[in-house]
């Protein structure tokens, strides 16, 4: 009869939509998982601006569930996800970046992402001042209070462990060595949710068109 069923989702695909099979081949996800992520992506990308792209405000809203003020960490993560640097996270960028957080993703990818995250000024090094800034932001955003001298002690102690050549900055090689000895420092780089997103979020697979 030549009967072709059309998928209602196809006509409303987000502007940066990419083929889930291609994304799955380039990431730690299966095709079904990429499709599940698309359901999550649509929800996030239509939460405020309704344009199928994730804006910084939508990203922050999802992370904190409130439109609280600027967050250094959310800003940094958003900027690293926004690979094209055009102010929005497209679907492909969302999947490729989240893939680094898959528990099975290579540790070296996680370490490299974390290094970029902490290298606030993009100099290729994590400098003492940057680490101080990160710790102060962490404390501010969590309403914790530590004296300046306590912050200084934490930063100095961290540098005494990580900055092996003593030049007051952590280079990528020193970082690699440091995270090998301190794997807990990359704990936030693995999201158990991604291990099996289709099981964790069964509603996401309702629209899946492919069997893996």
């Amino acid at each position: 009869m030549g009967c072709v069923s059309s998928s209602p989702g196809r006509s409303r695909r987000a502007p940066g939509y990419e083929d889930p099979a291609v994304l799955a081949s380039q990431t730690s996800f299966t095709v079904n998982e990429v499709e599940a992520l698309y359901e999550l992506y649509k929800k996030l990308s239509y939460s405020i601006f309704k344009d199928g792209l994730i804006h910084k405000e939508e990203f922050q809203l999802a992370l904190f569930r409130t439109s609280k003020g600027p967050s250094l960490f959310a800003d940094r993560v958003f900027d690293l996800f926004d690979l094209k640097r055009n102010g929005v996270i497209e679907f492909g960028e969302f999947v490729r970046s989240l893939s680094i957080f898959h528990p099975k993703a290579p540790e070296s990818d996680k370490a490299a992402f974390a290094f970029k995250l902490y290298d606030l000024r993009g100099t290729g090094y994590i400098e003492k001042e940057e680490l101080r800034e990160l710790v102060v932001a962490l404390l501010d955003e969590s309403d914790l209070c530590l004296s300046d001298s306590a912050v200084e002690e934490i930063v100095d102690n961290t540098f005494s462990q990580a900055d092996s050549n003593g030049d007051d900055r952590i280079d990528p090689k020193e970082w690699e060595e440091f995270v090998k000895k301190n794997p807990a420092s990359l704990r936030n780089m693995s999201l158990p949710y991604l291990q099996d997103i289709t099981t964790a979020f069964p509603s996401f697979v309702m629209h899946s068109e492919v069997d893996d």
Binding site: A62, R76, V135, S142, I154, F178, S185, R187
Partner: peptide, 25 residues
């Protein structure tokens, strides 16, 4: 023993935790 800053950042939800993206369901 003083903790290291990266471990601190990694372990606190205010630091850098993407779980919120999935918990809004």
């Amino acid at each position: 023993r003083t903790c290291n800053a990266f471990q601190l950042i990694s372990s606190m939800s205010s630091g850098f935790d993407l779980s919120g993206l999935f918990e809004s369901e």
